[in-house]
Design a protein around this nucleic acid. Structure first.
Lengths: 357, 357
DNA sequence: TTGAAAGCGCTACCAT
DNA sequence: ATGGTAGCGCTTTCAA
């Protein structure tokens, strides 16, 4: 018997091998392995013992081929640079791994062809659902890749960004309100000339940020200077650093453009501004104040600590999972849920109160 | 025909459906779909057209069940907090997604039971290989989870940490040398009392860091004060911040313990020290100098910009993939390769030269 | 309580 | 060039 065991160990073990050794049929082994009440206690014990000795691990592919669940969730993200997404990912992992789901993560860095390939790959792998953080165009909300998902009836929860004209599940923050709060905070501190330092032109995200900014100004009936709207191609730290250094040298230091405050639509952008300020000997908040959006952990370590709008990343991840699993497990009773976490101001020291002067 | 097409669209489409509509056998359809030269050009065209119209996506599980490759790689990481791992992950994604591999990411946050469950899950999913960043105990290198992988003959590349007494594939940095360089830099600048601010007690990593520190001191025949060795439980930012704030208040400000320089074994640790320094009105580098390890992007934005040892994350990820794929695709010609990237100093402004005084 | 057999979707062998 | 069939590892009838 032990000899036989050793030999079996070398091949990939399956229920047939176990059945042979246990002198049982594969059906019985299958039942025993799953603690099926139809199987007798002794059989279960015997089978499990052999399985362990043989290093048996059930073939998940065969299982899902047979059944209709893969216990796998696909994640389609674009921007791994941004700590925001790492934090969201972490909370998704924590929930899903405990439930023994696998998570296939996909990353494409604004390459839509690659994104499409990744999504097709996920469809082929027959994931039970997808959490998708898309780049949404301001004009054409129904991108090819969103259509792909919808046409194939893939259970999807949109995260962080979503096509607001479509009736889809969503978990994320209220970007418009966030930037509204940021702008309002500067306004309340007496700032009137406020740079909107934004990213990803023509996307819904940029639009929402702009709307938030405009909303705060309109509310107080202050005039908006559109020359102070700057939009970067992406949220890349290095890119933003280079851009802002040029920008400030060409426009601010020589007083072509004057502003006393900056609203940055992401902490990464704000951090790059700190770098420029350090290098150019500019003082925050004396030369300009800054409010940003995200509140990633480390911005509290900047000097001065960054005032920013908090985006609840843990909750965003958890809600995405909750909504997704609900719809996967209740196909007949799907809910189109939108979970929108409210942002709030974290007041630190990067804003100067101009009224006190 | 179009009616038929519509109906077929509602079910999950497979080659049988295509075969029926095309009036061909499943074998022929299968061949056509894969551009098998045995299939005629017209057949290929015809089949592909139907497949597209039906929204056909091959079932990857059936494919891999049949063949012996899943085109899936498992990642087993522990510390998603640390931007180091995000950066490595990114480079792994970039290489692997292009090759149409799926990546199942697993995260366990120092919970070894969860880690084990995750690994078993990966085995069940029949991944082609695993990239694993384990926590290695200084004493017992052969942990249960490493044994699990070895016993099951799972192709594995260790990343960042590895059991150096075992003959395994590895891609990572030379931690000992890194901390040696950091310490030497402080020594060269006239520092003698240097705090080693480390994390993860009893791990090989902590040991390697200690060895690097000791190496630099021994080389110059300076004496080491073991009271200046501090080891945190983990690399958590918040945890380190709280700890260091207490530590410095209890030991440094009241001159119980004196040191002029700090070597931190990870940028996250260093950043938390900046936060404490800001809050306590301590000046870096006047009150103490600091050199760290990793060189994540944003540390250049700190004030003063952080002097740190660069760890080439992109290359570490790429090499892990290269080694893994080589062994997967050349089962008969496996290589036990260790790729160790050399760290180097990035000199910024967080170190004061004591000799100039 | 157990076993035999069909079938999940695909590929590869052997015919034709 | 194409079709029939067996089988990858598993679950689930149906029968005993």
């Amino acid at each position: 018997m032990t000899e036989q065991l050793k030999e079996e160990k070398l091949k990939k073990v399956n229920i047939k091998h176990i059945a042979k050794i246990a002198n049982l049929s594969t059906s019985t082994v299958s039942r025993a392995l799953r603690n099926d009440p139809e199987a007798s206690k002794e059989t279960i014990e015997k089978v499990k013992l052999i399985a362990e000795k043989l290093n048996y691990y059930p073939n998940a592919m065969a299982k899902s081929l047979r059944g209709d669940k893969s216990y796998t969730i696909g994640i389609v993200f674009n921007d791994m640079n941004n700590p925001f997404y790492s934090d969201v990912l972490r909370s998704i992992f924590e929930k899903l791994n405990k439930l023994n789901y696998s998570i296939i993560v996909t990353y494409y860095n604004w390459d839509f062809e690659q994104e499409r390939k990744n999504i097709i790959n996920l469809i082929s792998k027959r994931v039970d659902g997808i959490i998708y953080s898309p780049i949404i165009s301001q004009l054409n909300q129904q991108t090819d890749n969103i259509s792909l998902l919808m046409e194939n009836g893939i259970e999807t929860v949109y995260l962080d960004n979503y096509p607001d004209k479509l009736n889809v599940c969503y978990s994320g923050g209220d970007h418009k309100k966030a930037i509204y709060l940021a702008t309002k905070h500067l306004l309340d501190n007496g700032h009137r000339d406020i740079l909107l330092y934004s990213a990803m032109p023509d996307t819904l995200y940029a639009k929402q940020c702009e709307d938030g900014y405009i909303g705060a100004f309109s509310e107080k009936k202050f005039e908006i200077n559109k020359e102070l709207f700057v939009t970067l191609d992406n949220f890349d730290f290095q890119n933003s650093y280079i851009y802002f250094k040029k920008f400030i040298t060409n426009n601010f230091k020589n007083k072509k453009l004057k502003f006393t405050g900056i609203v940055a639509t992401g902490d990464i952008l704000a951090i790059s501004i700190y770098k420029v300020a350090n290098e150019l000997g500019l003082s925050i908040p004396d030369d300009f104040s800054i409010v940003s959006y995200d509140n990633i952990e480390i911005v509290s370590a900047l000097n001065p600590p960054l005032t920013t709008i908090h985006q609840p990343r843990k909750e965003i991840g958890e809600n995405a999972v909750r909504i997704l699993l609900h719809n996967i497990n209740n196909k007949k009773n799907r809910k189109i849920e939108k979970s929108i976490m409210s942002p709030y101001l974290v007041n630190r020291k990067s804003v100067k109160n101009l009224k006190q002067i």
